[in-house]
Amino acid sequence: MTVVRIHLISTLSPKEVLGVLTDFGPSRPQAWPTIDAEHFTVHELGDTFAEVTEGTAAAWERARYQWDPEGNEVTITTLDSKLFGAGGGWVFTMTPEGRGTRVDVRLTREPAGLKGKMLASLLPVVAPSALRKSLAGPLKAEK
């Protein structure tokens, strides 16, 4: 298992960050640079959860999002993925900081197959800067 941890400082409030992370409307592919419309499907959506497939042709994943609408955490569990096995995922934790929010991100990957194992070994080196860049726009944070 590979774990990568980063944090960002967002100009959004914790509730606004939660809203961005859990907005599964049709504009999601335009808001997130790592999602294209062809690889975005909402399978099930409730008040505190969503099951979606999202990503690109090169790297998609089907995941279950869970959150408390009044809480400060979004947990995303990978169910299936083109590159990695089930069971990994993401945890986003939001903490008020100054006029915005500190967003702590923990990415966990379970390598599946040779390609997944090779990519997982590179994640600690390449993922922090790539994640900051891809999350900065939607979460209104510094890169």
Score class of each variant (00 low, 15 high):
Gly89Glu: 03
Arg102Met: 01
Pro29Gly: 08
Arg109Phe: 09
Lys82Met: 05
Val4Phe: 14
Ile9Phe: 09
Ser121Pro: 02
Thr75Ser: 01
Glu61Cys: 05
Gly25Arg: 05
Phe49Met: 13
Val105Tyr: 07
Val52Ile: 08
Ala57Arg: 15
Gly25Thr: 07
Met1Ser: 13
Val20Gly: 09
Val17Met: 04
Ile9Gln: 11
Val103Ile: 14
Ser134Asn: 12
Leu83Asn: 12
Gly137Asp: 04
Arg102Ala: 02
Val126Gly: 10
Ile76Phe: 00
Thr41Arg: 15
Asn72Gln: 11
Ser134Met: 12
Val4Cys: 11
Ser129His: 13
Gly19Tyr: 10
Pro96Ile: 03
Thr48Asp: 09
Glu54Ser: 00
Glu73Gly: 00
Leu131Cys: 07
Glu70Gln: 11
Thr41Met: 07
Val4Asp: 14
Ser134Trp: 06
Arg64Phe: 01
Glu16Arg: 12
His7Asn: 13
Gly46Tyr: 07
Glu51Cys: 03
Ser121Trp: 14
Pro96Tyr: 04
Val103Met: 10
Trp67His: 02
Asp23Met: 15
Leu8Asn: 06
Arg102Tyr: 02
Phe84Ser: 04
Val91Leu: 08
Ala141Ser: 15
Ala86Phe: 13
Ile35Val: 12
Ala57Gly: 08
Gly113Gln: 03
Glu51His: 02
Lys140Pro: 00
Asp47Ala: 15
Ser129Gly: 10
Gly55Phe: 08
Thr2Arg: 06
Gly87Trp: 04
Ala31Pro: 14
Arg62Pro: 01
Asp80Pro: 00
Phe49Val: 09
Met94Gly: 05
Thr34Met: 06
Glu142Thr: 07
Glu16Met: 10
Pro26Lys: 08
Gly88Met: 00
Val20Asp: 11
Lys82Ala: 12
His39Asp: 02
Ile76Ala: 01
Ser27Glu: 15
Trp90Cys: 03
Gly55Lys: 03
Asp23Gly: 15
Ala120Lys: 01
Met1Val: 14
Glu110His: 12
Pro26Asp: 13
Leu21Thr: 13
Leu122Ser: 10
Leu12Ala: 12
Glu142Trp: 00
Ala127Gly: 06
Met1Phe: 12
Ala141Tyr: 09
Gly87His: 07
Thr95Ser: 06
Asp80Arg: 06
Val52Met: 04
Glu142Ser: 06
Glu54Tyr: 04
Phe40Ser: 03
Glu61Gly: 05
Ala112Tyr: 12
Val4Gln: 11
Gly19Ile: 13
Val20Met: 08
Leu122Ala: 15
Thr95Gln: 07
Thr56Trp: 02
Leu139His: 05
Ser10Tyr: 14
Glu38Asn: 07
Lys115Trp: 12
Asp104Phe: 09
Pro29Thr: 11
Ala130Lys: 09
Pro111His: 00
Glu54Leu: 04
Ser13Arg: 10
Ile35His: 03
Pro111Glu: 01
Ala127Asn: 06
Met118Glu: 05
Ala112Thr: 11
Pro26Gly: 07
His7Met: 11
Ala37Val: 09
Ser81Tyr: 03
Ala57Glu: 14
